[in-house]
């Protein structure tokens, strides 16, 4: 048994930290989040150069990068491309991604149709014929930043080049402005059927959940760090507020939630990387622990900050909204606990 990341993985983390701290200080994140584009398009090439898009990376390397990108709130469709779609890419898309030229998202949800990735094809009203695809998909992550979208149709997976068909993209106003959702309206749009079949969606979902749990750990760590640094400095009634146990115990509770979430997220990342029999349960456990843990951490941090934590000006709400995004993706804790109960109470 070995529960530590390898030296190489820790080096990867260190270089990711350096890059993110250098390029994306809080003020830059705010500026990008509030811009129309929502990101700096040079980022993708930089990520490619840094090796973040390298198809050779495994789930544990991805886990490290996801955690660090959550800590920074990196505005880029990295998780959508690698976490959500990595298992579905064909060689054309994979090469394009590796070269820093293509960015991919997944479109599975429909209004009055499927809402979960697993089984998304079953009630889908999206269908393909003669190299075209027709249907409307909602809540597509990072749709505005993707060049290609993998669309779940009723008979398989299709790649749509949205960069070449921009009229298919309708962006919706999203509270997390660093990972926006859009609608994909396909009407006889050219589409290419992928080699990966519908059964690959289960793998894609597991990978996406494991990485998103790691990202949530980064979000929670940032929320904790913000709370710690503020309560170490801020004075009221002549005392540093961190000396009041009503405040400090809130911070301790956040630390506990973070450690538990981190343990579960790493377990899930490992289970996915090793193809363990426990992978499904580990991923659900991580969804509960990290998904709810990050929301909790942000809420505790906002409270510890008092009024300033409730302002638009402060960075915290950006993390809070990402925490909620992650918590809402593919079923909240309640649904994952139900899945766990099915397993342990069988």
């Amino acid at each position: 048994m070995d529960f530590a990341f390898s030296d190489e993985q820790e080096l990867l983390r260190a270089s990711a930290k350096d890059y993110l701290a250098d390029r994306f200080p809080a003020a830059r994140i705010v500026e990008l989040a509030d811009s129309d584009a929502g990101w700096d398009s040079n980022t993708w090439k930089e990520l490619a150069d840094l090796g973040w898009l390298d198809p050779e990376l495994g789930a544990l390397e991805h886990a490290v990068l996801a955690e660090e990108s959550g800590y920074t709130l990196l505005p880029a469709p990295w998780w959508s491309t690698i976490g959500l779609c990595g298992a579905l890419l064909d060689s054309e898309l994979r090469d394009g991604v590796a070269a820093g030229e293509r960015r991919v998202s997944l479109a599975w949800a429909e209004t009055d149709g499927p809402s979960s990735i697993s089984g998304a094809a079953n009630d889908s009203a999206t269908s393909a014929e003669h190299g075209t695809i027709t249907g409307t998909k909602v809540q597509v992550p990072d749709l505005g930043l993707a060049t290609d979208v993998i669309v779940v149709a009723n008979d398989g997976l299709y790649a749509v080049d949205v960069a070449a068909n921009p009229e298919t993209v309708i962006m919706r106003s999203t509270i997390d402005r660093t990972r926006r959702l859009g609608e994909l309206v396909l009407s006889g749009t050219p589409a290419r059927k992928l080699d990966a079949g519908l059964d690959a969606l289960a793998t894609a979902r597991r990978n996406a959940l494991a990485l998103l749990a790691c990202e949530s750990v980064g979000v929670a760590q940032r929320a904790l760090d913000e709370a710690a640094s503020y309560t170490k400095e801020r004075q009221q009634f002549g005392r540093i507020i961190g000396t009041y146990q009503g405040v400090s115990h809130r911070v301790s509770n956040t630390f506990v939630a973070l450690q538990l979430a981190r343990s579960m997220a790493y377990w899930a990342a490992w289970a996915v990387s090793a193809g363990s029999d426990d992978a499904e349960a580990a991923v659900s456990g991580a969804k509960v622990s990290a998904g709810e843990g990050a929301v909790f951490a942000c809420e505790q941090s906002i409270q510890a900050h008092g009024g300033i934590g409730f302002t638009w000006e402060h960075i915290l709400h950006r993390y809070y909204k990402r925490a909620q995004w992650n918590n809402g993706f593919e079923g909240s804790g309640r649904q994952h606990r139900a899945a766990i109960a099915d397993k342990i109470l069988a």
């Binding site: 530590a4 981190r262 343990s263 579960m264 790493y266 377990w267 606990r337 139900a338």
Partner: peptide, 24 residues
């Protein structure tokens, strides 16, 4: 009850792997 027992299971696993991490 299922929800509560599943949460206990998550709490147990989180405890287990937190121990393993501090064991490192």
């Amino acid at each position: 009850v299922r929800d509560q027992i599943a949460q206990l299971w998550v709490d147990l696993q989180a405890l287990r792997f937190t121990n393993y991490r501090s064991l490192t």
